[in-house]
Amino acid sequence: MSITPIELWLLFGIILIILEFSQLPGIGFLFLGLGAISTAIIISYWPQGTLLYQFAYFAITALLWFLLLYYPLKLFIYKNSTNLSRESFDIIGSRVIVRHKDIKPGEYGQVLWSGTVMNAKLTDNAIDIATIGETIYVLEVKGNVLICSKKES
């Protein structure tokens, strides 16, 4: 008894989906698994395709599944979480140390947070200059810039 290409693609798809849900979540094996199952369905209707066509079907269907499901799955996973918002980070409220040069109110500089040098800006309504080595506090994050204040919020 020999295994047909349809059965191989089905088995491959099922293995990939099981891997996604049990061992390696978030890698994208779900899309590849759905692509493999879709390839099995396609070649069951059009069996005259060569192995090259089968891999092309696999690549195209996996991409289509990704495009169809990525954003809805992302919303489903993060629907009750604030992690979807770019403004909520664990860094807010943290202490950072001014590095390289003094930071004047409303101007940009660099700070050290958890061993990482990051761009920072003092709030526009700040009065004092933050000097090198001084500890300041993160109020918010805008893009890749930490908005800081000399007062703890």
Rank of each mutant, 00 (worst) to 15 (best):
S2W: 08
T4K: 07
T4L: 11
P5N: 08
I6W: 05
E7T: 14
L8C: 14
L10Y: 12
L11N: 09
F12Y: 11
F12M: 15
G13R: 02
L16S: 08
L16W: 04
L16G: 01
I17W: 06
L19K: 01
E20C: 07
F21Y: 10
F21P: 00
Q23V: 14
Q23P: 00
P25Y: 08
P25T: 07
G26F: 09
G26K: 11
F29R: 00
F29K: 00
L30F: 15
L32V: 01
L32M: 15
L34N: 01
L34T: 01
G35E: 04
G35D: 04
A36C: 11
S38N: 11
S38Q: 04
T39A: 10
A40Y: 03
A40T: 04
I41D: 01
I41F: 14
Y45D: 00
W46D: 03
T50R: 10
L51T: 15
Y53R: 10
Y53M: 13
F55N: 13
A56E: 09
A59T: 13
A59M: 12
T61M: 11
A62V: 01
A62H: 04
A62N: 03
L64Y: 00
F66M: 08
F66P: 02
L67I: 07
L68H: 00
L68R: 00
L68S: 13
L69E: 05
Y70E: 05
Y70N: 11
Y71K: 15
Y71S: 12
P72N: 07
P72D: 05
P72S: 07
P72C: 06
L73M: 15
L73R: 03
K74N: 12
I77H: 07
I77F: 14
Y78S: 09
K79T: 04
K79S: 11
K79P: 00
T82H: 09
S85F: 07
R86V: 10
S88V: 13
F89Y: 09
I92T: 09
G93E: 07
S94M: 10
V96Y: 02
V96H: 01
V96P: 00
I97Q: 12
V98M: 03
R99Q: 13
R99H: 03
D102S: 15
D102L: 07
P105N: 09
G106Y: 04
E107Q: 12
G109F: 02
V111A: 03
L112M: 13
S114H: 13
S114L: 12
S114T: 11
G115N: 08
T116D: 15
V117H: 03
V117P: 00
V117D: 05
V117M: 10
V117R: 06
N119A: 13
A120S: 13
L122W: 03
L122N: 06
T123F: 06
D124S: 13
A126R: 06
A126M: 10
A126L: 05
D128F: 10
I129N: 10
A130R: 01
I132Q: 05
E134H: 04
E134L: 06
T135A: 12
I136G: 01
I136T: 03
K142C: 02
G143Q: 12
V145S: 06
L146I: 10
L146T: 06
L146Q: 02
C148K: 01
S149A: 14
K150F: 00
K151E: 14
